[in-house]
Design a protein around this nucleic acid. Structure first.
Lengths: 144, 144
DNA sequence: TCAAGGTTGATGCAAATGCATTGAATTGAT
DNA sequence: ATCAATTCAATGCATTTGCATCAACCTTGA
């Protein structure tokens, strides 16, 4: 039996939903306006670029990104089609394979960061002190 | 010229994106598992139920929900098709109309709250003290 | 060894989304 | 009064998502 959420909890949730609606859209919009692909592409490229040898199993990427399986599969399709990543056969497990970032993928990720970081600064950095940001980060961390 | 975001800002942003991915999906999932429609339907019904006479102009609903115009238009289509809301002609402005929540809509909104509030409590309330939740709410508020 | 069950990943199909455009009504300036 | 500009809302079309399912492979256990 779950009890009802407190007023504080409910308000925090409501704001979270609202901020997500607004901020995410704003940042995505900045990226699009600069002619870049969506945030999910950036996230995937970043994950891949950080991984050992620039490659991951789809199932790992899926866990990092908290995405449904089919969604990951199709994201990889598009990255591959755009030449930003490529599928490699996996020597360990015949079911799966690796997804490897290409040089073009690394280049795009770096270029996107200029625009992306500016958007983060404008929409978040400009509105919170570093202390506030750290606090927010901490609180959000407890929800993860 | 925008400067680069601080480490704190960047971390807070990263967590925000991650928490949004995970929590939203978890809560949506709880609703779906209970046989209810998506969160957006609930939000719309709630907005309508709170409005004067249970009705709003689409453009107002759009602003409340931070949704694109066409998205709102289609959400209304579906609510109407499901008998949860209905379009009324607007006596003031011949271009537009009103969207009014129906009794079925009010009933559904109330019933969804049982499941929804339980999900909020489980995924947020259980993880933060009321003081933390209030703090989180405050910080998020500054981003809106 | 081999059958049962679990993982990994892709895909067909229906529904939803995003984009651009349209059309109708209002507003504002001359 | 008139015409341009703006606001409100819907929609055609291509892309993307979500759901269910499938096929291939791995693991376990008798």
């Amino acid at each position: 039996m779950t009890r009802k959420p407190s007023q504080e909890t409910t308000s925090a949730w409501a704001r979270l939903v609202r901020v997500k609606q607004g901020l995410l859209a704003a940042v995505e919009n900045d990226l699009k306006a600069a002619g870049f692909p969506a945030l999910a592409w950036y996230d995937a490229l970043l994950e891949l670029s950080r991984a050992q040898h620039g490659m991951l199993r789809p199932v790992e990427l899926e866990k990092h990104m908290l995405l449904p399986q089919y969604s990951t599969s199709r994201l990889i399709d598009r990255l591959a089609e755009a030449g930003l990543a490529e599928r490699k056969t996996c020597p360990i497990d015949g079911r799966g394979h690796y997804v490897a970032i290409t040089q073009a993928g690394r280049n795009l990720q770096k270029k996107m960061w200029d625009t992306y970081s500016a958007a983060i600064e404008r929409h978040v950095g400009a509105k919170l002190s570093n202390k506030d940001a750290a606090q927010l980060c901490d609180l959000l961390g407890r929800l993860a």
